[in-house]
């Protein structure tokens, strides 16, 4: 291994679940994203497929990791199943 190979850690691969209008925009329930090492949940939006990120992330978005709520600053880990939860409208 060359010395400088150690400087940039491997990117992580995560599965991103989307719902409601984001699901319509994507045309699927989920997508796979490669993110730079150290990226957090709130850094995922610019990495999403173009048909989603053509608009800004809606205000009030929350995140979950592996089906548990998680703060937006949570770092991504390889293999995570993350969810982008847009403002809810049940009831």
């Amino acid at each position: 291994m060359r010395a400088y190979d150690r400087i940039v850690p491997d990117p992580v691969t995560v599965t991103v679940l989307v719902f409601a209008s984001l699901r319509d925009r994507l045309g699927a329930d989920e997508c796979v994203v490669r993110a730079p090492h150290g990226a957090a949940l709130n850094g995922v939006w610019p990495l999403l497929p173009e048909q989603i990120r053509r608009a800004d992330a809606p205000p009030g978005v929350r995140y979950a990791v592996n089906d548990v709520w998680a703060p937006a600053e949570t770092p991504l880990a390889n293999g995570d199943r993350i969810a982008i939860v847009v403002p809810v409208s049940g009831g």
């Binding site: 719902f19 209008s21 847009v86 409208s89």
Partner: peptide, 20 residues
């Protein structure tokens, strides 16, 4: 609770209610 509604209007169009 992460549940969303989509209106199906009488005129055949639809719209999600998932805006802030």
């Amino acid at each position: 609770v992460p549940i969303w509604k989509r209106a199906h209007f009488a005129d055949g169009t639809t719209a999600w209610f998932d805006e802030h």
